[in-house]
Amino acid sequence: MAADPRPQVLAGGTDFMVEVNYDHRRPTAVMSLRRVDELRGWRRHGDRLTVGAGLRYVDMLESEFEVSAPALAQAARTVGSPQIRNTGTIGGNVATASPAGDTLPVLYALDAEVTVSSTRGDRVVPIQELIVGPKRTTLAPDELIVSISIPVSKGPQEFLKIGVRNAMVIAVASVALVVDGDNRHIGCALGSVGPTIIRCSEAEAMAEAEIDWDRLHLPDPRVYETFGAMCAAASSPIDDHRSTSRYRRHGVYVLATRALMRAFEPGA
């Protein structure tokens, strides 16, 4: 990759090849990662998962993976069609850095760390520092995403995504909610409602203080909607051909409320 001209990296190709087809990219050299088996797998060590950048969406639907990372599996399930899920990868989702990338809200909520490699060595970057804008990352031209590290699930996880049809659709809005029962922590992040994924820190802190962590219950049922409203307030959606900012904000409110209701039953 340090060669000149530098080859462009092809993982699943589900975004890349569309750009080539429309002549938005004219690569002179392409380096395919499809046969790099080292990028394909995932492994668990202790309470963390290391997910290879080449792990495909379809691979994330395997039950063993789903037990360790249920929200990531659910996000993978909502990506495109079976054909897309059979070839698209999590590393490609990160590198493309679309605000509508389906796995990204989950990775943000989990405080994922991305390992990036080049001839100059490896570096580990928090995902929110790697992605800096819509389809913009801090990846250097000679750097490759190798793996993504996330904590193993230690509580309820939810991923909810609104699209105008029941499958194979770009998110109008999405919400990831992950609960760490050991550390009494909630992570919540929003997709498709800002230039990048949006983390809902204030809503997280509010809910963490209200939860009965010993029982994983929520004593005050008003908190569900307050949480939803705070997430909606954190969103920064736009009007476009897919939806309106008003509906997106409303959607975040509904999804976040429902996500918290699924994670924590009401009552003391």
Binding site: Q74, R77, T78, F159, L160, K161, I162, G163, R165, N166, A167, V169, A171, S174, V254, L255, R258, M261
Partner: peptide
């Protein structure tokens, strides 16, 4: 909502 599992 289908695959997006949004329903209550």
């Amino acid at each position: 909502g289908g695959a997006g599992r949004t329903a209550d």
